[in-house]
């Protein structure tokens, strides 16, 4: 049998419909599909080749909920079973009464005394069914209602860069600006600092990281940027 041929390189940018590889040796993973004996890209993104598997990492688009992610959401609705939360994906997430707090909530009690419309919460995704039904939990360390501060949105694909390896980047920003920062996997970042000046600096730095996410040695660049600006 003839060996398959790879047409693209690792980390190439591909567009929908672009041919990635020829032959049955290569297997389409997330973001790719097979047509005849070819592997075709299905959305705009970066190629990731792992052995025989070809995967596309999306560069744009809405957040896709994943089990285990910690996200920042906003309460949009309250119904019998719990709360509806906007997490920035295509569908609203559900936060049920039993996962909402460690307190016991009486059946039929007024749920607004726990979380009300417009409240911002940090929650964990416990279950995702066919990318449509998303369940949240608020039981766990660091999962809470967050008061005050400001929320900024970045692209979900850039979140790992903002956090850095083992959280180096984000802890550096926290240290230099003195702000409290929470980064949600859905691309929402909560910033709360001593004053608007510090918050603005944290905002600028996070936007800088988002714009230069592909640059090598970003940590040093950001460090320099933070040192140059004196508060």
């Amino acid at each position: 049998m003839k060996m398959g041929k790879l047409i693209v390189k690792d980390k190439d940018i591909v567009v929908p419909g672009e041919e990635l590889a020829e032959g049955m040796d290569y297997l389409p993973a997330e973001g790719a599909f097979r047509k005849d004996d070819k592997v075709i890209a299905s959305y705009l993104g970066l190629v990731n080749i792992n052995g025989r598997l070809i995967k596309i990492i999306p560069l744009s688009g809405r957040y896709v909920a994943k089990k285990g992610d910690t996200i920042i959401g906003e309460i949009t609705d309250i119904n019998f079973g719990g709360w509806q939360v906007d997490v920035g994906s295509s569908y609203n997430a559900n936060l049920s009464i039993k996962d909402a707090t460690s307190d016991f909530i009486n059946k039929g009690s007024d749920l607004t005394q726990y979380y009300t419309f417009g409240d911002t919460i940090v929650a964990n995704i416990t279950n995702v069914i066919r990318n449509k039904i998303v369940d949240l939990t608020m039981r766990g360390p660091g999962l809470k209602k967050i008061p005050g501060g400001r929320i900024i949105s970045i692209k979900p694909s850039k979140v790992p860069r903002v956090i850095g390896k083992q959280g180096t980047m984000i802890s550096m920003i926290k240290e230099k600006t003195g702000c409290k920062i929470i980064v949600g996997q859905n691309g929402r970042v909560w910033i709360s600092g001593d004053g608007p000046k510090q918050e603005k600096l944290a905002f600028d730095v996070i936007k800088l990281i988002e714009e230069n996410a592909h640059v090598d040695g970003l940590t040093d660049k950001v460090k320099k940027y933070l040192e140059d600006i004196k508060l």
Partner: peptide, 11 residues
């Protein structure tokens, strides 16, 4: 549509 990151068969 492609910029919105939607799965497509082509342009």
């Amino acid at each position: 549509l492609a910029d919105a990151g939607l799965p497509m068969k082509g342009l």
